[in-house]
């Protein structure tokens, strides 16, 4: 539907070459501590599986990496 010219505004994420490492239960524990949230150990597997889902969504987004100047991420109105 969109024209080729518009697609040119989209750069290829692969060019960045940065593939995110999969989180682990250990990394979840560390990141939660760094974020200032303490949750019982029983929560960690569930947080991990949700974080992996989010990471998949992020990968989908990054694969389409827009030129950051082609659209605004924030709109401020006076």
């Amino acid at each position: 539907m969109f024209g080729a010219r518009e697609e040119m505004a989209v750069t290829q994420a692969e060019a960045a070459g940065g593939k995110a490492a999969r989180p682990t239960e250990d990394s979840v524990r560390t990141r939660m501590a760094e974020a200032g949230v303490s949750a019982p150990a029983e929560c960690v597997p569930g947080v991990l599986s949700n974080l992996i889902v989010l990471q998949d969504h992020v990968a989908t987004l990054r694969a389409f990496a827009l030129d950051p100047r082609s659209a605004s991420a924030m709109r401020f109105e006076a």
């Binding site: 979840v28 929560c43 947080v47 974080l51 989010l54 990054r62 827009l66 082609s70």
Partner: peptide
């Protein structure tokens, strides 16, 4: 539990990913 785990995972998202999502939305 399902809401807690989703929210806790959300807390760990980098701001850059959130901004990329908002940028895509505008686009």
């Amino acid at each position: 539990p399902p809401v807690r785990e989703r929210l806790l995972a959300g807390l760990l998202l980098p701001s850059d990913d959130y901004l990329a999502a908002q940028r895509f939305r505008s686009w």
